[in-house]
């Protein structure tokens, strides 16, 4: 199944055997998406929380 990355527009490939709760990573921009629901034909995802890097303190 294919979805579009909401951040950069890249094509995301959702594996057939993926499950709710699984994290899908955008190959281009690195945004993580969590699968929140999935049926045979549809998948819903939300952006997953992540901890960023910060230097210079």
């Amino acid at each position: 199944m294919k979805k579009e990355c909401k951040d950069c527009g890249a094509e995301l490939t959702i594996p057939q055997d993926s499950m709710v709760g699984e994290i899908i990573t955008c190959p281009d921009c690195g945004t993580d998406f969590e699968i929140v629901s999935k049926t045979e034909d549809t998948v819903e995802m939300k952006e997953a929380e992540s901890v960023g890097e910060d230097w210079g303190q």
């Binding site: 950069c8 990573t25 281009d28 921009c29 690195g30 945004t31 993580d32 992540s50 960023g52």
Partner: peptide, 11 residues
């Protein structure tokens, strides 16, 4: 190459 990645070593 387009480089703008939230993850990995090369952001």
């Amino acid at each position: 190459r387009l480089i703008r990645d939230k993850k990995g070593l090369y952001k």
